[in-house]
Design a protein around this nucleic acid. Structure first.
Lengths: 135, 135
DNA sequence: GTAGTTGCAAAGTGTTTGCAGGCAG
DNA sequence: CTGCCTGCAAACACTTTGCAACTAC
């Protein structure tokens, strides 16, 4: 189908051979803004498209991150979220539900970056606004 | 010694009974700005003051966080840093060395917080500037 | 053939838990 | 006594690794 072909193209452009497993994972995760854990990807790909081993999910997510198709978000100890939006932006993290929401980069204005330690360059800036339901 | 007495007082004020283990952990970790993992606390307390089990270190760190003596910093999947500075501030994280450095709150100016999701309140704002050595 | 990929199971890492024994009030 | 605290060992959750079978070119 057409989606598959687009995904295969996308993977090739990123420098990855488009195996069925990678295409399936790409279909689920890439293409629309989304935050998922490895487990969630594994569950959805396996039930909706084809069985894929958890090891392959981890391998593939790692490869996607390396190739810039995906971003890791660290908000919770012992759990990595994969974010299909790679452009510069930030996050709300609901500490009660674990839900992660995007904040467009232009809605957070960091005025005046502090002086960096000597011999260091910025690798990335993460802003995480932890929220909880009002009681 | 005097330090112990001050630490015992501090723990009591926080609502914790000042057991020898808690005092020892407090001596190592509280009192000066510092970022340590549970393992590091365990190693330093055990060699410098007294043997303490890892389970007790975890219990104690959790208790300290609950009582507001300590803050958790999540920058790396599968590893929690404990930060003895509880006042509002931010962090540099050196992605190559794992070193964590404080940024005073007034050096990062977040202009214009984005609109919160309905029925939510801010639980905390984390700014992590990931840095790496220049090559 | 040869290099890259998959998937199982085993190993690893950091953290939490169950529970028996100890200690303080 | 009674309730909290400690520490051992086992359990856990998530992730990585070793390796043999497989696939594509």
């Amino acid at each position: 189908m057409r989606d598959d072909i687009h995904m295969m193209q996308k993977l090739r452009e990123a420098g990855l051979s488009p195996t069925p497993q990678r295409v399936a994972i790409g279909e689920i995760l890439l293409g629309r803004p989304q935050h998922m854990t490895a487990e969630q990807v594994h569950a959805r790909v396996s039930t909706e498209i084809r069985p894929v081993s958890l090891a392959t999910v981890y391998n593939t997510l790692k490869a996607f991150v390396e190739k810039g198709l995906l971003r890791e978000v660290v908000v919770d100890p012992g759990r990595v979220y994969y974010d299909s939006t790679v452009a510069n932006h930030h996050h709300f993290y609901n500490v009660e539900t674990g839900e992660l929401t995007d904040i467009p980069a232009d809605q957070v204005n960091i005025a005046g970056l502090p002086v960096l330690p000597r011999g260091a360059e910025v690798a990335g800036v993460d802003v995480i606004i932890r929220i909880r339901p009002t009681h």
